[in-house]
Design a protein around this nucleic acid. Sequence first.
DNA 1: CTTTATTCCTAG
DNA 2: TTAGCTAGGAATAAAG
Length: 935
Amino acid sequence: MDAKRRNSGPPRGGASQAKRGKTGGDWEDSPSIFEEELALFEEADMEAEEREGQAGHDVIPVGELFSTDLNPRWRRPQAAPLNPDSDTLVFQQIDLDYYLGKLSWNPEPSQGNVPIIRMFGVTDSGNSVCCHVHGFAPYFYIPAPNGFTSDHLSEFKRELNSAVLKDMRYNKDNMSVTVLAVDITHKESMYGYHGKRIADFLRITMAIPRLIAPAKRLLEQGFKFGPFPIQSFSSYEANIDFEIRFMVDSDVVGCCWIELPKGKYRVSLCQYEVDVGWTQLISHPAEGEYQRIAPLRVLSFDIECAGRKGIFPEAEKDPVIQIASMVQRQGEKEPFIRTVFTLQSCSSIVGSQVLCFTKESQLLQSWAEFVRTVDADIITGYNIQNFDLPYLLNRAATLKVKLFPYLGRVLGIKSVLRDSSFQSKQMGRRENKILNMEGRVQFDLLQVLLRDYKLRSYTLNAVSFHFLQEQKEDVQHSIITDLQNGNEQTRRRLAVYCLKDAYLPLRLLQKLMCVINYMEMARVTGVPLTYLLSRGQQIKVVSQLLRQAMKQGLVMPVVKPEGGEDYTGATVIEPEKGYYSVPIATLDFSSLYPSIMMAHNLCYTTLLQKGSAEKLGLTPEDFIKTPTGDLFVKSSVRKGLLPDILEDLLSARKKAKAELKKETDPFKKQVLDGRQLALKISANSVYGFTGAQVGKLPCLEISQSVTGFGRQMIEQTKQLVESKYTIANGYQADAKVIYGDTDSVMVKLGVDTVSRAMEVGREAAEWVSSHFTPPIKLEFEKVYYPYLLINKKRYAGLYFSSSADTHDKMDCKGIETVRRDNCTLVANLINTCLQTILIDRDPQGAVAHAKEVISDLLCNRIDISQLVITKELTRTAQEYAAKQAHVELAERIQSMFWRTTFPLTPSTTWNNSSPSHCSASLSPSWERAKQRASY
DNA sequence: CTTTATTCCTAG
DNA sequence: TTAGCTAGGAATAAAG
């Protein structure tokens, strides 16, 4: 049973109908397109194998022992011998973690465990690397108390050490030294401007990362040592993940290239398993040749379970019957390993290797061995995180397959399943399973899509159709068990289906350039690749902030999260609702919030807290007052960190875009495009970070000043445009701003052609820009002609930008056509109506069409099952079935044409079965609507 | 019946 | 131990 689909959303009535038409029952007669595709791979392989002299893809007899020697293609390329004295080792790092171990690098005496950073990566020749980095310890800061000198250091250290020891409820590692070192450093808090006063901070180095939190707590609660009175210490940078701490301090960013100079590292075992001191490694910025990407191995897989009729498969009861896997090298077009493991015999499939097993436990164990042999860097699939991987793990546990749960790269570390719930305002509460696989990045395509794309449906079938115009093999999940219980032909059919489900995620990953885009994001923001899928937005800003702060000797305070009141956001100009049959020019501030922060030097480090201005003797020329009354020093006094970060991001984006234009190699082009996108997103998330009230470092003075400036600017823009473009000033008509939201104004300029609107629009944008501080810039973006303004945040129009003669597209904002909480019938109806109004300019025609559709609906000429598309497509099937399905038909196109609403709720509740013919007893409101419509 | 609060999802 | 922001339309449920 294809259980995943149910986990990620129900099948849609419409989709199954569409599929029925396609292949029907003639599957056995003619091979599917996908099978032909697989066969083509085989041909390409034959050529390769002739060269390599390797055996091909046989059907392994049932019950034969699995052997990795069977297919040498699975292994990584042979690693050339490595001599630490004469060779440098260069690899692309893709994942990074730490473990506790005995210090074995430096001769420094130390009892007990120390943290050792472990970097995993791949060389240019495709060999895997595991690099243990020794000698880096976690630390944090506190301000030194008044009168503190180096004479007090040892006493402080001793007292803190014993306090931490005493605080430990049970010291199972029998640690005696918790505080490794205390040093006096000269730093400055990044929060607030205080006259560049460098102060003494104690840098407290702890033995292991876990001890930071208790040390911080003890110091906060009130700590007494030596002659000093008991006092409470605020802490700085005590809430930084150890991995991030290491990366920031060593100038390592996610997915960058690492060089270990000859003579500076030593080899231990495996394909390049090496040890190095943390000061020895060289991290290369992702520029020039170091923009390249190593030939990473990407493994995609899919499993099938034989579920019982109508019951969601349970790992404790239902067997895993097939596992299909495909492995592709990053940057190559096709997967070079295509294999399916089946329970019981299975006929051969041209282009893929079929391995048959009589015992399920053997199948599982062999697959785990396959994973270890292939040694993939990235593991993908569809909903593998919450379904396939947990299922396999639980199943292996049920069957007591002892060697299964070692899926990571580190020998002897068991993969275990954990539950994690994660909630944010942005994504709501999300329950996830977490499986550790050291050294392999789990890149579940479903998670990527949920994060990055707003889609109506997240089933693999729908997603594949949306992005690839391709669909799954036609196998209803209800017949999977029957296929398994049939013969080797029916199991072959299932295997082809399973292979395709492993293949599609690879294709999607490629099409959407996920790996490249995520790597670029990791490089730009400096966080490990895995953080991008497992963590929120804040960590990316923190990483950048720390890097910038370190350059200037600034330290980041730990603030306790406390929710406060929301602050005022942006202005939405009251729309002059209506239908405009004249060109409407749209002017936009590009990157409004980042440019405000840069223009006015808004930052933690430039904020003047109450009374600071007088205390520091600043003159009014030294600082500005923002629209919200907050004070910030000018860049002449001190340049802020945030403006620095934003300038770096935006200039890097400009550079990437310029390189993109010059570049001819399509692969490098993708990388650069991914980078410019990552840079843009990163710049925009800085503002959100300052306003995140339960965040790492909220600063409402900054965020409310930013929106305050924004409000002022949009108002000023409206006035400037309306004051200059007037009849009195010799223009054709008085310009009127008919609408605007946050950073844009829609202007009726009183001109009657698109090209004229473009000219005047460009001129106006430039002129208005001159009234603002750089880099704030108003840009002409597009002309809408005609334009239908329904309400705030709801409008549609034909979009002219590249050419004045033909429109680029019909642009719809906020209307039912773009909302996912309406059924497709509504979206299609509105879309057709809008087209009729805007393109054909035939409002009567639109009304007629709408009436016709509604009439069809009222007379039951439209199958109600088509309407069953509910809200919350991302929710699980269980939640889904419990909820009553809403069938809605809501129509509204501007009141001047027609306006009526037909809500409809069938009495039947939607359960997982086909809703085919709801003999819907209609809701009262529907009955009323019926009468009102009086057909 | 009207008013208010809540939920959902979008714009920017 | 973890989480970017506010504005706002439309539908619906709950309260008056």
